[in-house]
């Protein structure tokens, strides 16, 4: 059964999305996986707008309330050994209850630590990354913050990434 991409959206938003013209990447960017999974080092990236409470501020919700067409394009680092109770969430387009109950539904640090321990993957990098997914204009994200994250991942010798949008 094919996935219905609009199943969980309110009707008005689904209609808006269906009519939205977006440019298709040409060519689609491609980096082949160079190693078997058992030797590959992974980083996890989510756009669920989570952060570590006490270590970093949340994403700028007030800025978005002042200008509803703007979303905070910055990122937060999440250490792989983060504890569930340290996770803060500032995505105004989601009910954050479930991801605060179990981080693994958006950022599967515990599942990947298990895959690392059993040898299915090579390793999980020390740092995961969180963006906030509501970005009507992604220019700043594309030109500034995503390259910064790419640099940080290179420093940790990352090969591959699991992306979980929200």
């Amino acid at each position: 059964m094919p996935v219905d991409s609009f199943k969980y959206l309110p009707g008005s938003i689904a209609g808006y999305y269906r009519n939205l013209a977006v440019p298709k990447a040409d060519p689609i960017p491609w980096t082949p996986l160079r190693k078997p999974l058992s030797e590959t080092r992974f980083a996890l990236v989510t756009t669920a707008g989570i952060y570590v409470e006490g270590a970093d501020p949340g994403f700028d919700q007030e800025g978005e309330r002042r200008n509803p067409m703007w979303g905070d394009p910055t990122f937060r680092r999440i250490p792989r050994d983060v504890r569930a109770e340290q996770i803060g969430a500032s995505h105004l387009h989601l009910n954050n209850r479930d991801l605060q109950a179990d981080l693994n539904i958006v950022l599967p640090v515990h599942r990947f630590a298990e895959l690392e321990a059993e040898g299915t993957i090579g390793s999980l990098a020390p740092t995961a990354y969180s963006f906030m997914g509501y970005q009507m204009d992604n220019r700043e994200w594309r030109e500034k913050y995503a390259p910064e994250v790419a640099g940080l991942m290179r420093d940790e010798a990352v090969d591959a990434m699991l992306l979980t949008p929200a």
């Binding site: 996935v3 991409s5 609009f6 199943k7 969980y8 999305y17 977006v22 960017p29 491609w30 980096t31 082949p32 996986l33 160079r34 980083a43 990236v45 594309r142 995503a146 390259p147 994250v149 790419a150 991942m153 290179r154 990352v158 090969d159 591959a160 990434m161 699991l162 992306l163 979980t164 949008p165």
Partner: peptide, 19 residues
Amino acid sequence: MFEQAGFSTVMVTNMPYWS
């Protein structure tokens, strides 16, 4: 963006329409 930077990526999404 990340793929161009030399990382292999896989996305899990409920909107494969966008992909």
